[in-house]
């Protein structure tokens, strides 16, 4: 089976800082997918082309609610509905790594592919008049001039909480495959059979049970000596008199 590169986004740790959004825009507006124009950036109705957005949802009702930050970009579907509808072949899915790309020299800007993407992952570039979307930073992940550590999508490198994992989901031993397998990774809108390559890791409850005696150290936990401490707090313990 060939490679399928993808992002795995951990909703449990995303803090909604938009670092991925800005670093994506910065890299891609100056890279081969650029430019990504902004219109009226300092007016009352600014707008622009982005490959990645972070949205925020409130789950539950106050006070029993949680804020979930939700980054969304092209999911590089394994069966992408946006590709076969394209009349020019400008939209295509790469055999070798499963990245879905748009050839900006072939695209006629008919917008049909954006209608055929249920996730709203494609945006028309208002200046170049062609369709744009996340390229998984195809122009940097294979760039041998970069140190190996940096051959990752810009968003992944920017994330301060490491909420974004990047790798080959067809390789069962990759970090992303493990994360999907072991941490309940899921796909968006599975009902349309698009089989998005990008997965999301759900929120998790982190709970540990702590008993009282675990908070107060017993000096002789294995009870090897017969002189038991008479009380856990009042008596001086070894911790109180030594300095290691």
């Amino acid at each position: 089976m060939s490679k399928q590169l993808a992002l795995v986004i951990d909703l449990n740790v995303c803090v909604g800082c938009h670092a991925c959004v800005t670093s994506c825009k910065e890299w891609n507006t100056s890279g081969s997918a650029g430019s990504m124009p902004d219109e009226r950036p300092y007016d009352s109705d600014p707008t622009g082309t982005f490959f990645n957005r972070v949205q925020t949802y409130e789950v539950g009702q106050y006070p029993n609610c949680e804020t979930v930050h939700f980054p969304k970009s092209c999911l590089h579907c394994e069966d992408p509905p946006c590709v076969p509808v394209c009349p020019t072949g400008a939209s295509y899915k790469r055999e070798e790594d499963g990245i879905v790309l748009v050839d900006y020299d072939k695209c006629i800007g008919c917008e049909y592919c954006s209608w055929a993407c249920p996730y709203g992952a494609r945006e028309i570039d208002s200046q170049q008049k062609v369709m744009k979307k996340c390229t998984l930073c195809v122009d940097r992940i294979y760039d041998e001039k970069l140190p190996e550590m940096e051959r990752k999508p810009a968003c992944v490198l920017a994330c301060p909480t490491s909420a974004r994992l990047f790798g080959d989901i067809h390789d069962p031993d990759s970090t992303v495959s493990q994360a999907i397998r072991e941490e309940g990774g899921y796909q968006l809108m599975p009902e349309w059979g698009t089989s998005p390559a990008n997965h999301y890791l759900p929120r998790r409850k982190t709970r540990i049970t702590i008993h009282e005696d675990e908070l107060v150290r017993e000096d002789n936990p294995l009870h090897k000596e017969d002189v038991y401490p008479t009380g856990p707090v009042k008596q001086t313990t070894l911790d109180d008199v030594t300095s290691w």
Binding site: H18, V21, R40, D45, P46, T47, G48, T49, F50, R53, V54, Q55, T56, Y57, E58, V59, G60, Q61, C65, T67, K72, S114, R122, E123, I124
Partner: peptide, 14 residues
């Protein structure tokens, strides 16, 4: 109960 609080931008988009 899921309510969207932000769609990632204040101005519109495509």
């Amino acid at each position: 109960h899921i309510t969207q609080r932000s769609m990632g931008m204040t101005g519109g988009s495509f």
